[in-house]
Write a protein that binds this DNA or RNA. Structure first.
Lengths: 338, 338
DNA sequence: CTGTTAGCGCATTCAT
DNA sequence: ATGAATGCGCTAACAG
């Protein structure tokens, strides 16, 4: 295996077809200004030889690599996986290929990623920025000097386009929904407060709670089961017991659900629950979980299209787009008991 | 944004450092045969200028692109997402970058993917082959003429390495476990029978059932809720009612669970359930679901390492590796009622 | 419409 | 230990 027999080059095709290299090149690039029978002949020869243009050579010449960098914290996160999936489809449609890099949400790794992508001379970049954007990040992004679109979290500097969810507004809706159900003591369960999404959701929740004259209860330490359990049970045994939980993200919602389940706390009768971010099986659990569902497809598509339009030079000023989420009513908020 | 100011080249570095290009090139490639103070000086200049070697140029010269193609049916499938994640880590460690392509499990798209990767002159390929491998696929794979490792499903021809789960054996174990629980009428719920994994699991199940002198009950039409419901309920109303279900893959397991839930069929008392493939929340559902858990990390790591070793020319004959799965006992099989 | 030619940035002989 | 020169495969002037 692995005998790298040399591939045919454009020259080979030209020679075999008895024409100049320019003509072959033209055929590759759309066949403009080439006679019809000539075109047919060359295409036939290309097929016979199994010719495939060498992207590296074109890249060297044209300074365009036909690649787009994609940096996500983790590709196993369903949210980012779907982003990648949508991006791949749209990129491929324009004959671009995705260079997948993972940052594990570490600023240091993300900087490395940028260097790698710079060496590969990507034509554009889709990235989920690290939790806190450093000067180093900004510098490296500028150094890349290609169009960039930030996804899910904006970059501190306004100079780069971004596409994010309406975290604040959607959180307000969710909390207001709990309030409409007559809930008075609503616990917001986090969530790294350094994260843009968490911060915005918390802000939205706070706005809604204050507007209703309710206390703002928040516990940001809920990264694993023990911490979530401690956080929740503290508020279950306090005098002003909670009667609802707003999960600020996926994981905290699931943990809250598990804590309730294990402690025999009835949902939604005793404590009602809404989570931010839909997840597989949210509808299958009993009770099923009411969630804020982000318009992930639309987010991803918007981001990719925006990048592509930047890359095409059609749209040279940075844009900051917020995409609306919507509340998916299921059982855990108390709407239905089914 | 997007002003592509020209990047410094190796020449620029050489000029700025007052040396020849050869020396700079040597520094980039490890700094052998270069005087220590010279080396330091050049490295300083490179840093000052923010020099990053152009991969396209190196690729053209050396015929190695430092890229690995990754073709998966879908990156939103958690199984393949984890594969990609692990592959990315190991590839990056060797200074390779992943070109992510999606095939949507369509042979036609996969062929296109291969063309794209050929144009990009990837140095190696990790792929999940389509359900049925055509001659066209084999031809295109050979044309690539780079090391290839098939993942999750082998390629019909033995000429390409593959890394897969022990589907057959693991399915035998699972079914035997149900039999040990005294179950006599076990329904196997599929699953596209064209898929290697499904086929092997079904074979394993059949082996175990026949060895125990039990009927082999199988329904392969369970792609969505209605079909799964029809398939299951048919066997619930028949005279020889089923008392267990073996979900041949993720989706059919979840659907089976939902059908039971909606029809008030007690699990595991009335019907016990084991699924092939673990999934998020399998432990959170009530009852929690007993599953065969594939060693996805090990699978992915083995595949990537194998590819890298092939690429390093260390290991030139194709290998076919099977990685053991294990049964994760939870409630749905009947072991615990918790 | 078609052919000739000159680099794109780099690694690599071959000298020195 | 270091430098000068060549060519990887392709595109884009520039001629014809």
């Amino acid at each position: 295996m692995n005998i790298r027999r040399s591939r045919p080059t454009l020259h080979d095709v030209a020679r075999a077809a008895g024409v100049g290299t320019t003509t072959v090149s033209r055929v590759i690039n759309g066949g403009h200004y080439v006679g019809p029978e000539m075109l047919a002949r060359i295409q036939r020869v290309m097929k016979e030889l199994g010719y495939q243009p060498n992207v590296a050579a074109r890249s060297l010449k044209s300074d365009r690599s036909r690649t787009i960098g994609l940096i996500v914290p983790s590709i196993t996160d369903p949210f980012f996986a779907r982003f990648a999936s949508v991006a791949e489809v749209h990129a491929r449609r324009k004959d671009y290929v995705l260079l997948l890099l993972t940052s594990q949400d570490k600023a240091q790794l993300e900087l490395e990623d940028l260097q790698i992508l710079e060496r590969h001379r990507v034509d554009g970049l889709l990235l989920v920025p690290p939790r806190s954007s450093s000067k180093a990040l900004l510098q490296n992004l500028r150094r890349l000097s290609v169009p960039i679109v930030a996804f899910d979290r904006p970059i501190a500097s306004r100079e780069f386009s971004s596409v994010v969810s309406d975290n604040n507004t959607a959180a307000q809706h969710a909390v207001r929904h709990l309030i409409h159900h007559g809930r008075k003591r609503i616990l917001c369960l986090g969530g790294d407060p350094n994260l843009h999404t968490i911060r915005e959701r918390m802000k939205g929740a706070t706005t809604a709670l204050k507007a209703a004259g309710l206390d703002v209860l928040a516990e940001m330490e809920a990264a694993d089961y023990p911490s979530a359990e401690a956080a929740i049970m503290k508020h279950m045994s306090a005098k002003g017991k909670i009667d609802a939980i707003f999960g600020l993200y996926n994981q905290s919602t699931i943990l809250a659900y598990e804590v309730m389940q294990n402690h025999g706390i009835r949902v939604p009768e005793r404590v009602s629950l809404i989570g931010f971010d839909d997840f597989a099986l949210a509808a299958t659990l009993r009770p099923s979980i009411t969630v804020v569902r982000q318009a992930i497809e639309e987010l991803a598509q918007t981001a990719t299209q925006l990048l592509l339009s930047h890359m095409a030079g059609e749209n040279n000023s940075p844009q900051h787009i917020e995409v609306a989420s919507n509340l998916v009513i299921r059982q855990s908020c108390g709407c239905t008991t089914a």
